[in-house]
């Protein structure tokens, strides 16, 4: 089946002064796809994501979503950051609705969407709690739920589990896959953890060192949930590790 192109990145370049961070980067992301971006530390992964979400303007080239230049006012973009980013002054319920309020006036729709997401994330019992009253993993679940609740055209995740312990990370990785399947959203997930990338992604983009461009893309045909001990899984993981090591 031919998949529809959702995001098209064309000859993207970004430099800060003389420093070239991204050079001539082109690729496509299909509708409903889960893509992981991996690359050496400090290769400009975050810069890359900041351009997808148009927090930064590219120096040259363009990011097109559904054929139009990407912009937060036009498109539903949703960002999950590395640092905890649930608003501490809003309750779980209000946090969930925050992203939706940017573009929707219809209270009933916001309510319905928020309820749906809270149920999906199992956060209903905390609806009146504030993030600081909850554990770190629950707080991150608020952030994930808030992002999915916005019904995003594109969901960008910037090493969202980078600072979590292994148990929490495994749990949240399974959660994000479950919700992605449920909601059928396009996800771009940045990580430097190769195992995480192979565990989650349908397709992995490997970036080169600075100035970054796409070195290779690898399709991972394994069904979810994946077994980290499956020989095929191990083979792909080792292959990607080599690609990054021998850039």
């Amino acid at each position: 089946m031919e998949r529809r192109v959702k995001v098209k990145v064309e000859k993207l370049c970004k430099s800060f002064g003389d420093l070239k961070v991204i050079e001539d980067c082109s690729f496509q992301i299909y509708d409903g796809e889960f893509v992981c971006v991996v690359g050496p530390t400090g290769c400009g992964k975050t810069t890359f994501l900041n351009m997808l979400s148009s927090l930064l303007k590219p120096t040259k080239g363009a990011v097109l979503i559904d054929g139009e230049e990407a912009g937060p006012k036009k498109h539903n973009l949703s960002f999950i950051f590395q640092e905890p980013s649930a608003f501490p002054w809003l309750t779980v319920e209000e946090n969930m609705a925050y992203g939706l309020r940017a573009k929707h006036k219809d209270k009933a729709y916001i309510k319905e969407q928020t309820e749906h997401m809270m149920e999906l994330m199992g956060l209903g019992k905390y609806r009146r709690s504030y993030p600081k009253e909850l554990s770190t993993s629950t707080e991150q679940k608020i952030v994930i739920g808030r992002a999915f609740a916005m019904n995003p055209d594109l969901l960008l995740m910037d090493e969202p589990y980078g600072q979590m312990d292994i148990k929490t990370r495994f749990y949240l990785e399974d959660e994000v896959i479950r919700i992605w399947k449920e909601c059928q959203k396009t996800v771009v997930f940045i990580t430097h953890n190769i195992e995480e990338a192979v565990y989650l992604a349908e397709r992995v983009l490997i970036l080169t060192n600075k100035p970054a461009k796409v070195k290779e893309e690898i399709i991972i045909p394994l069904p979810h949930p994946r077994n980290v001990e499956d020989p095929e899984f191990v083979r792909i993981r080792n292959y990607i590790t080599d690609q990054i090591r021998w850039w």
Binding site: L55, S85, G99, A102
Partner: peptide, 13 residues
Amino acid sequence: NQVYINFAKTCGY
């Protein structure tokens, strides 16, 4: 915190 501001920006506020 800049993260809060960035999140709100990406929402289109």
